[in-house]
């Protein structure tokens, strides 16, 4: 994934400090938020909550429906480009050599995200790759304030592994903030992709969807 971040305006350290005071207050009002610096990986049940917010819980849906619902919720436009190999054979080779299967670009200024995937990917891998990149958007991985990396020396190893980062202004679907460690962000995007695939296939046969209608 790549982010085209706009140049920061020079609001100065005063506003940053103000934002620092505001954040805990904002978190107080958020039900079940995990924005206190650490959290665990997304569970299937938590993903079902995200689906409920998108209006997809208990329904069978295609990745296109998930993409459209996510775009509506985040109020951005999401374009998925499946590039045929014959158009840009070099793209496929470059991606394959680099070990990547797709590319996500995000522009805050244009309020849009674009996902590029080679058309030669096997259908299941193509679907999961697109869902993986959509997972980054849902998690808010592209809204990370990278200048506020936590000081890992001050934390326990286990805690640092699951440390999260604060976000810039923007909408995300996930309740928790993105992980500080990139490998964890990738792992969670994989989890989101697999949860989405199964939830879309099973609809109201999903045990997690059924839990939302049987709370007692």
């Amino acid at each position: 994934m790549n982010v085209e971040a706009p140049k920061r305006d020079l609001t100065g350290p005063f506003l940053n400090r103000l934002a620092g005071f505001w954040r805990p207050l904002r978190n107080l009002s958020a039900a079940r938020s995990h924005v206190n610096g650490t959290r665990s990986l997304l569970t299937a049940a938590e993903f079902q909550e995200e689906l409920a917010i998108l209006g997809l819980s208990g329904r069978r849906f295609e990745p296109e429906d998930y993409s459209d619902a996510l775009a509506d919720y985040l109020d951005i436009s999401i374009a998925v480009h499946v590039i045929p190999d014959s158009w840009y054979p070099e793209l496929t080779r470059l991606l394959a050599f680099s070990g990547r299967l797709g590319e996500l670009r995000y522009s805050e200024q244009l309020n849009m995200a674009a996902i590029f995937v080679p058309g030669s990917l096997p259908p299941l891998v193509l679907t999961l790759t697109i869902l993986h990149e959509l997972g980054h958007l849902a998690a808010g991985d592209l809204l990370i304030e990278f200048d506020e990396q936590p000081d890992e020396d001050d934390q326990h190893a286990e805690e640092a592994k699951f440390a999260t980062l604060p976000l810039k202004k923007g909408t995300k679907l996930a309740r928790g903030n993105p992980f500080a460690e990139e490998s964890l962000r990738e792992r969670e995007a994989n989890l989101r992709a697999s949860y989405a695939l199964f939830a879309g296939c099973l609809g109201d046969d999903s045990p997690h969807a059924y839990d939302m209608y049987d709370v007692l």
């Binding site: 409920a52 917010i53 209608y213």
Partner: peptide
């Protein structure tokens, strides 16, 4: 509490579908 999915700030059960939205 069951409809809300547990106590705030404590991960618990899933909330009811209309509540999650």
């Amino acid at each position: 509490l069951a409809l809300a999915g547990g106590l705030p700030d404590l991960p618990g059960n899933l909330p009811a579908e209309p509540v999650a939205r």
